[in-house]
């Protein structure tokens, strides 16, 4: 039969090329961007210094004191601060920051898991009940318009009363993380091509099979988008949550302390902020790594 004459061999056809497996290009470009930002930082500083922090253009004078050494320390000084003692006779700053970062990360991870589970459960509920979705989704949205700074002290008080003060920071982090998970997961669960759903109906599949074999896999890319947002949000939530908690450790506490002593040593605050940023990126990267393992059919597709 005709079929045998023009058979296509496996691998012969791949409409979309497999992704660049080396992974070097994104690394290279991010290094380039970092270098460019550093050059910009130092360039602005030395330029401002050369004109004595005041640039006169025609009639107007622009104040460039923003770029002086107290407002914007040299990058070298910031990096140098890591190895200097954090306080008199204390351990070097990097060791102190690392300890605090781990503490904050642990709270963030717990908050991420709590928020993720709650957010996911809400999405499943909303996907199966129009009534619940109509009734509750507005409150879920409204919850995010209340500033976390207003919620945090209340959570600390409640948790203190309940005798679970160590959970106050994770719960504040969870407050930030459940929302993207609910919204993105709900969209992934419900935005399904109609024929894909009709296929399930033609098999007389039950809601559980439809959830497990169609809705969830269909939602996975969106779920991971949400988890990546939540990962960074949980770090922010944990840092903010530490402020009113009365706890003595954590990056949030370190930021608070170093900002109090800012005038004596600006680089220490910048170093702490850098640490907080790295923590968020680390968490994000871990989730992105898991995504690549799980969403394999997409990883091969991505260009």
């Amino acid at each position: 039969m005709a079929a045998a004459t023009e058979r296509i061999e496996p691998n012969a056809r791949a409409e979309r090329p497999p992704r660049d497996s080396s992974g070097m290009r994104p690394l290279l470009s991010s290094i380039l961007i970092i270098v460019a930002l550093c050059l910009l930082w130092e360039g602005l500083k030395s330029f401002s210094k050369s004109v004595d922090y005041a640039l006169t253009v025609g009639e107007t004078t622009i104040d460039l004191s923003l770029f002086n050494d107290t407002q914007l320390p040299h990058l070298g000084d910031i990096l140098g601060a890591f190895s200097e003692p954090s306080q008199r006779n204390g351990p070097p700053l990097y060791a102190m920051l690392l300890e605090n970062a781990l503490y904050t990360l642990w709270a963030a991870v717990r908050g991420f898991v709590i928020g993720g589970v709650i957010g996911f459960a809400l999405a499943i509920l909303f996907a199966h009940s129009r009534l619940l979705q109509r009734g509750l989704l507005p409150y879920v949205v409204a919850s995010q318009t209340v500033p976390i700074l207003a919620i945090a002290p209340m959570v600390v008080i409640w948790m203190g009363r309940a005798g679970a003060l160590e959970w106050s920071v994770p719960i504040i982090a969870a407050y930030l993380t459940f929302f993207p998970v609910t919204i993105y997961t709900l969209r992934g669960l419900t935005s399904i091509p109609s024929t894909a759903l009709e296929l399930m109906q033609s098999y007389a599949a039950g809601w559980w099979d439809i959830l497990i074999k169609l809705r969830l896999p269909n939602a996975l890319p969106q779920i991971f988008t949400a988890l990546k947002i939540s990962a960074t949000a949980s770090v922010v939530g944990a840092i903010i949550g530490e402020l009113p908690s009365g706890i003595q450790t954590g990056l949030g506490i370190a930021i608070l302390n170093f900002s109090r002593y800012y005038n004596q040593s600006p680089p220490r605050l910048f170093a702490t902020i850098l640490m907080a940023g790295l923590l968020g990126i680390l968490f994000f990267a871990v989730i992105a790594g898991i995504e690549r393992l799980v969403v394999r059919w997409r990883a091969e597709v991505a260009s």
Binding site: T195, A196, E198, L199, P217, L220, V295, W297
Partner: peptide, 10 residues
């Protein structure tokens, strides 16, 4: 169906 409607994750 007119379109194959395969599940892309399978």
């Amino acid at each position: 169906f007119q379109s194959a409607t395969l599940y892309e994750w399978r």
